[in-house]
């Protein structure tokens, strides 16, 4: 009306959230810890998406990164080691209105919680799952993790980690019903933000492996990657977020990638040198378990009472 474009927002929002609305207590991670960058990125996404704090739930397991919910001013569930995913799925099961972010570490997700990892991918419930991969157990003070590189000296393998590490992105791409897998690094704030925001917009289980520096125990693991940007391979195209030119400049190595191509995604994910970053795979058509779990939410108490009476009568003699 009055010649104004109809997509103009004429209502002034009743509430506007600033970064402060998502900032919980002071983070107690070590100075230089990559977790801080992830926390900032998630707070910015919440702000930019204007997620009501009361409708946002951060779920975590146990470990350094699992302190994440404490530093958000949203609802949070800091549960058990390895078990954030079943809890997050339970939260989503009957509350489609809640926005769920999961913070899990490489020990939490790929070791003690590995069974849930397989199945949560298969459930494909709508949530953002951030794997804080620092290649070590930090909170328990320097033990080998399932993603520790061969040769990493730790308190449990002083002569060096012996087993080949798990590749979380490649592994996830092998699970049934996978719908979103991305990889990013904590030290590229803009890329981290863009990838997590793309994960937020994907309807389904968005798995983002974040290479995350642990300045205390695995500084050496990430140093080379961080110093030499040509060791990262920026994925572009497909469902990869558009990046500003100045961000692109930070990635001398780039590759166009069709994010619907699962085989190409698996091949890329298997590669370490250069390490691909960006969205590896996205298929928005995969079934989401909410379609099953939300059934019946629309029934009124009266409907349910009536149905209950019918069920009782089925046992009548």
């Amino acid at each position: 009306m009055f010649g104004l474009p109809t997509d103009w927002e004429l209502d002034v929002p009743e509430r506007y959230f600033t970064l402060e609305d998502y900032e919980g207590g002071t983070a107690r991670w070590c100075p230089g810890c990559g977790d801080l960058a992830v926390l900032t990125a998630v707070q910015r996404i919440c702000r930019d998406e204007q997620l009501p704090p009361e409708k946002t739930v951060c779920v975590s397991g146990i470990g350094c990164s699992s302190r994440f919910p404490h530093y958000m001013k949203t609802y949070g569930f800091h549960g058990l080691h390895g078990r954030p995913l079943p809890v997050a799925c339970g939260i989503k099961s009957r509350r489609p209105d809640l926005h769920v972010f999961v913070a899990t570490g490489d020990g939490d997700c790929c070791s003690i919680g590995a069974g849930h990892w397989v199945h949560a991918v298969r459930y494909n419930m709508n949530m953002v799952v951030m794997l804080f991969d620092n290649a070590v157990y930090g909170l328990t003070k320097n033990q080998t993790s399932p993603t520790s590189p061969i040769g990493l000296s730790t308190n449990t393998h002083p002569k060096g980690a012996w087993l080949p590490p798990i590749n979380p992105a490649a592994t996830t791409l092998g699970f049934a019903n996978v719908s979103f897998v991305a990889q990013t690094v904590d030290w590229h704030a803009a890329h981290l933000y863009s990838v997590l925001r793309a994960a937020y917009h994907h309807r389904g289980f968005s798995f983002v492996r974040i290479l995350q520096r642990c300045p205390t125990y695995t500084a050496g693991v990430f140093d080379e990657l961080q110093k030499d940007p040509s060791r990262l391979l920026l994925l572009t195209g497909g469902d990869n977020p558009e990046l500003e030119p100045d961000v692109l400049r930070g990635f001398p190595q780039r590759q166009a990638h069709d994010t619907r191509d699962l085989v190409a995604a698996r091949n890329l994910a298997d590669q370490d040198e250069p390490l691909p970053v960006g969205v590896l795979f996205r298929d928005p058509s995969r079934p989401c378990y909410e379609e099953f779990t939300n059934a019946g939410l629309d029934l009124t108490a009266a409907d349910r009472l009536k149905a209950l009476e019918r069920e009782l009568d089925k046992f009548a003699v």
Binding site: L85, P86, G90, I91, S93, H116, V118, T293, R310, E311
Partner: peptide, 23 residues
């Protein structure tokens, strides 16, 4: 389901109680 409920068969016993506690 006829009374609007959800029976979730979890991937293991631990996930079953975790899912319940999430709900």
């Amino acid at each position: 389901p006829r009374v609007g409920g959800l029976l979730h068969q979890a991937e293991d016993e631990i996930a079953a109680i975790g899912f319940a506690l999430g709900a």
